[in-house]
Amino acid sequence: MSGPALLEVSGLTKTFPVKTGLLQRAKGELQAVTDVSFGLDRGRTLGVVGESGSGKSTLAKCIVRLYPPTSGRIGFRGADIARMGEGMLRARVREHIQMIFQDPYSSLNPRHTLYSIVEEPLRVHRRLPAEERGYLVDAVLERVGLDPVLRTRRPHEFSGGQRQRIAIARALVLNPDLVIADEPVSALDVSIQAQILTLMQDLQEELGLAYIFISHDLSVVRAIADTVIVLYLGRVMEVAPADRLFACYAHPYTQALLSAVPMVRTDEEERPPRIILAGDQPDAANPPAGCVFHTRCPYARNRCRNEVPSVRQIADQTEGHRIACHFPLSG
């Protein structure tokens, strides 16, 4: 694809003050996201993986501008929205970036009906006659597989899978360019999870949507993402096209993550050896010096303890395969 990408994030950093005691005095700061860069084209899916505390959700909230980033650039449709004021965001950005959360029950207003939940974004962002709004709502409900007859029902009357369909309908009613989905299928049963993933794939194909798909479940990301970014303690460890990342990962953390993923095996298949990481994740407010992963890395050497590895392109390798490691794995 030529021309600028739909989304171009560079050097994104988000810092929170760490407050303590009764008076909530700032005692330090926590870098939840540090120097994250990536691009995303229309119609493509970026998978973001990492464990809890890796900064996945903070990254998402910065991009939808629920949080103001501390530094860095968020190029969206050609404009930098990182420091854009609320008025401009409302007028030019908000309707084009939508978000879906893990638990649709807590993100849908329990007192509103299906109809008013899905119609609300139209009331806020579009000046349209009620009749036309109704037409758009019905169309999107049908598209996500919800019967418009149910329009007067409230969220508690729907199953988990149906509630996720409601959240998707609400996200799509404004016809956005980018949908950020934060663990959208993690709370669902396997069969329902497959229904929602398939729906998201169909909608992407039809509408040319770009997705940022955040999940701790690497196998789900494998099923939907074109590119994958691996985060650890808020830093990018590795970024690569999905096929390449899952087959030719070069970062020891990616290797450990993948080796931990349980797999369904039949008679013929053997699982790769599992690498169990020692210890627990370090405190994000007090990250290790050097490479943040060195305290748990089975291959760490002296240089890793002292020098922060920069994110760099792997020489002579597939385009778009970048890694932050002094001693990448080979083969």
Binding site: S191, I192, V220, R222
Partner: peptide
């Protein structure tokens, strides 16, 4: 068989799953 067709795997490239229709 339907449940197994819904299972995602890190060894399976981007693909279309075959969900079981309907709900429990």
């Amino acid at each position: 068989q339907g449940l197994l067709a819904c299972v995602t795997s890190i060894t399976q490239a981007k693909k279309r799953l075959r969900p079981i229709r309907g709900t429990v």
